[in-house]
Write a protein that binds this DNA or RNA. Structure first.
Lengths: 215, 215
DNA sequence: AATCGTGTAGGTAACAGTACCTAGATGAAT
DNA sequence: ATTCATCTAGGTACTGTTACCTACACGATT
């Protein structure tokens, strides 16, 4: 049997290092690393590894975008998503583009090895935390309870604005940083207030600072 | 020389594993791990490790909260923050509570070892990516020159108002709490801005939150 | 082809905070 | 007793945020 090649793409050296150590112990895999989405895509095109472990949250090109392009180009590769967040929408989209594994970074290392082995054997592997989460979401939806976590309703741009709000920047300052009109920022703020069901003078700022670790 | 003890607190097993591997290679350190903030705090209180590497983003009790408690209790320990985000406000607060190292997860593993060694030798170590924050902070302090002095210039009533300001209360709300006119509160805010040499939209609120532990 | 989500931008009104004034009451210190 | 700091309160102008709108462009989905 040939030695399989695994691509590890993550912008955090610590994660790459941890994964590499664990996978190499098996002496079953050849490892390539990438610290951003663009390099990962190039490597997948050129070297055609058997498996790609992609971090979703990478600057520039996300792991999700890489997977989408790979899927469109019809490249035959098993993709495992590695992510910090339990995002249902993202998970569903991942399934749509043929992602085989979906593991949360909070999971144990052995679970990631299990995922790798399962995917190598042509199976799907999902973090138990994901399935729990999905079940919970589904029951929430069936009981009619609406989104408890409005934070996930925010669009990427809105999160970007929220981050700058949490740094106490004024709308004018944020507009300058992002090179858009102050009206655009004011609209983003207002839309976020509606999504998060906030009202009052500095409710959004308060929310932004209370959730700053997630932004 | 004794073998130093290092606590690694991170909710992601992958990160803990990666760090542990790298640090153990040196054969210089004894390692304890924790996967949440509460356990980390207990371990720091009971086993008094020499260094604690704390992930800021942990569920339940964040690394930041752990550090704040440790600082308040006067426990003698070197703290290194490990975080994903370049947040200036958080960084400034970290410096205020005596954190010795501040490393981004996007940095290389060797840099984390450099940080550990530097902190062991009583030095500070900051990720190059956040050094510009430090520069800004120093210039702020040198040009401001009234940071600590200005705070002591505040009268008791002003401090009381500042405390309520730091809780994001509006002038109207503060006026209601203290049973005075909103104009009085507005004057207090304005007088404080003058004493502290603050200007701008939310300068006082920013100041109040950054110094909330002193109020 | 039509729809939808998203980002963009503008208008208007109301409310909150900042900036800079004046000024009376009170109590402590010289 | 007079000065002084402090707390109190009001006026006015300006800036910033919230709360409503409308509207267009663009890409993705259907």
């Amino acid at each position: 049997m040939d030695i399989e090649t695994v691509l590890i793409a993550d912008d955090h050296a610590l994660i790459r290092n941890g994964l590499q150590q664990v996978i190499e112990q098996q002496n079953l895999y050849n490892i390539i690393e990438a610290d951003n989405g663009k390099d990962a895509l190039s490597i997948i095109r050129d070297k055609e590894p058997d498996v790609a472990i992609l971090d979703i949250e990478m600057p520039g090109m996300t792991g999700f975008e890489v997977a989408k392009k790979v899927h469109k180009e019809g490249i035959n590769i098993n993709i495992i998503f590695l992510t910090m967040f339990k995002d249902e929408t993202l998970f569903n989209k991942a399934m749509d583009i043929g992602v085989k594994g979906y593991v949360l970074k909070e999971n144990t290392v052995s679970e990631i090895m299990n995922c790798l082995k399962a995917v190598m054997n042509g199976k799907y592997y999902l973090s138990p935390a994901i399935s729990d989460f999905l079940v919970r979401r589904n029951t929430d939806l069936s009981t009619g309870a609406t989104d408890k976590d409005g934070f996930n309703q925010l669009t990427p741009t809105e999160k970007e604005v929220l981050k700058l709000v949490s740094e106490m920047k004024t709308s004018q300052e944020i507009a300058s940083v992002l090179n858009v009109s102050i009206k655009t920022i004011q609209n983003h703020r207002n839309n976020m207030c509606n999504k998060l069901d906030l009202s009052g003078a500095h409710a959004l700022l308060k929310y932004a600072m209370e959730h700053s670790e997630r932004i």
